[in-house]
Design a protein around this nucleic acid. Sequence first.
DNA 1: ATCGATGCAAAAGTTTTGCATATAC
DNA 2: GTATATGCAAAACTTTTGCATCGAT
Lengths: 154, 154
Amino acid sequence: MISQTLKYEEVLDRFKKLLKSNNLKYTKQRELILEIIYKNHGHFTPEDIYNLIKKSYPNIQLGIATVYRTLTLLEEANIVTSISFGTKGKKYEFGLGEHHDHLVCVVCGAIEEFIDETIERQQEFIAKKHNFKMTSHIMKIIGVCKDCQLKKGS
Amino acid sequence: MISQTLKYEEVLDRFKKLLKSNNLKYTKQRELILEIIYKNHGHFTPEDIYNLIKKSYPNIQLGIATVYRTLTLLEEANIVTSISFGTKGKKYEFGLGEHHDHLVCVVCGAIEEFIDETIERQQEFIAKKHNFKMTSHIMKIIGVCKDCQLKKGS
DNA sequence: ATCGATGCAAAAGTTTTGCATATAC
DNA sequence: GTATATGCAAAACTTTTGCATCGAT
């Protein structure tokens, strides 16, 4: 697992500033959604996030619509990023850590992360070559993870 | 646009063999779906494909369910590949051409394709390092294309 | 003639929206 | 007090499934 480079307080602060500068309000729901994504490092669907919050804070009022709305907000602000796996919908993850890419197992759905400098550099080079102003990139290596290869004896 | 390396007849032949070897039947619907994806080089949702076929062949009987079922089949056979962009569902494209990756413009949605040997090789290296058996990969560079940079004066 | 494929419509999921109420500011 | 956010439920989509019928072999 790749470590966070920002402390939660810094992230929260950034989020609060973002809200203020857009005349948006700081609510308990919005904070909880950010907190869950930051603290449970991993990839979650909106429903996952909804369930995690309900489980951790049984008394909080929360609707799934708020989760969708907040994730959209956080994604626009580049605080979270989304990625699509297989046939199911988008999954979100915290997006202010060190940049990393993904290895996705088609059998068990496991996601491993990696950082590779050669690829990072080459992407910048390609963007430049095509006159693209790169804002982000996604790279997924899809295949069968070590464990599933053993299980299935492929 | 990257040119196809296989003629349509070769692809169709491959598809027919695949069907036969799995005790599946060769139907007009299945052929049309393959043909549309092959001939309209690009990225299509299942609904796009359904509409394209209905428009090109108004008299054909075709249900959206068949499109979904056939795309699943073609994807399993590696004849088409799918990729997710933004918030909308999966898009499919013909997958037997030379492998290529994508530059996606967030402003106008334009998709450019590129091939880069350095990245191809590095991906194999990373998969090996993580004991992954790579079956495919996806790489998208997201940003603002040349035209949109000019328009917006960014 | 057989067995898989199809279309249709219903069902299952997922995401978005409208609106009255609640809450941050 | 005002404007935005929320929860809920309905609506809008997207994808899958069951089943009677059709069609390829």
